[in-house]
């Protein structure tokens, strides 16, 4: 009697089959991944950890196999997987991008240094799992700009440096003309004295007042210039530091540009190779494997 009031349960056998099937799929996935790693088959590892990326970028297909749902099983293992994958990837990148230097920050995470020169820039990160550069946008933009400026024979900071140089020239002139200003101030003070002693007729009062106003204005202007001249020396010194850091950046970018030209020919080809890094690298792995088995 009571039994009839019970909800009917799903079929236990079916449930058993379902979970068994689901787990066996997982085991199958993990076995496959483990075997790929054991065989040092990085191409397969890349395929297994991100099927859709592999299909899209390498096979140029949208279809994703059922295994894709298992990928999340290894999310927590990403650092170790990255570390594993980094060996071959970085050795490939060292050939393809001889001007990039990779520094492992934490397990599987790599910082990119551009060049082997003094104070080379940190240029972003390497995303090992996605075989992708995460460049520092600001630095990349500066490098791009240096290519744009190629035809004008200018460097990225040329205008800024010229502007500071012009400013410094003016500052120097201000310092150099101190004697002239002192002489002129003496002259104005003389004239002011004469002006204050002038006893004109009533209708001259306006003219005298106006004269005095003009003299006072000129004196104020000269005093202001004196003050500027006083700080000019310090300004010149500190702007020399600015010029140095701008010139240094130009030098850095110049080396970066030469490196890109040396390897890729121009900025467009460099960018294209960066954008297609995933498929370039995996194709490379495939071609290498072909060589090995042959």
């Amino acid at each position: 009697m009571m039994k009839d009031n019970q909800f009917s349960l799903s079929d236990h056998d079916e449930a058993t089959n379902n979970i068994e099937f689901a787990l066996s799929k997982k085991v199958e996935y993990l076995n496959q991944l483990r075997e790929a790693i054991k065989q040092q088959d990085d191409r397969l590892v890349y395929q297994l950890i991100n099927q859709s990326r592999y299909a899209q970028l390498l096979l140029k297909k949208r279809s994703v196999s059922e295994m894709a749902v298992q990928e999340e099983l290894v999310v927590k293992d990403y650092p170790q997987i990255q570390q594993y994958l980094s060996l071959k990837l970085i050795s490939y990148l060292r050939d393809a991008y001889p001007f990039f230097y990779f520094e492992e920050m934490t397990v599987g995470k790599f910082k990119i240094h551009f060049g082997n020169w003094w104070d080379r820039k940190e240029f972003g990160y390497l995303d090992v799992l996605n075989v992708e550069f995460k460049f520092d946008e600001e630095e990349l933009a500066k490098l791009a700009k240096s290519f744009e400026l190629e035809s004008t024979n200018k460097r990225v900071n040329t205008d800024k440096i010229n502007q500071i140089s012009t400013q410094n020239k003016e500052r120097q002139e201000l310092v150099d003309s101190q004697d002239e200003r002192d002489a002129e101030k003496d002259k104005i003070r003389e004239e002011m004295k004469r002006n204050s002693q002038e006893k004109g007729r009533p209708w001259d009062a306006g003219r005298i007042r106006e004269e005095r106003r003009v003299l006072k204005e000129r004196l104020t202007k000269l005093t202001e210039m004196d003050e500027e001249a006083n700080s000019a020396y310090q300004d010149i010194k500190s702007s020399e530091t600015d010029v140095l850091s701008l010139a240094k950046e130009d030098t850095l970018i110049g080396y970066e540009r030469q490196s890109v030209i040396g390897v890729f020919g121009d900025f467009e080809k460099f960018t294209k190779h960066n954008n297609e890094l995933y498929s370039n690298y995996l194709s490379h792995l495939i071609s290498q494997k072909g060589q090995v088995t042959e």
């Binding site: 060049g115 020169w117 003094w118 104070d119 140095l244 850091s245 240094k248 030098t251 080396y255």
Partner: peptide, 27 residues
């Protein structure tokens, strides 16, 4: 000061030479 080495870096480049980054922050 790093500035001092920066200056050498720029001057070297103007003379077709390169100050390289060595180990442990050396130039």
């Amino acid at each position: 000061k790093r500035d001092v080495i920066d200056e050498l870096f720029v001057l070297a480049s103007e003379n077709e030479l390169m100050v390289e980054a060595g180990a442990n922050n050396s130039a």
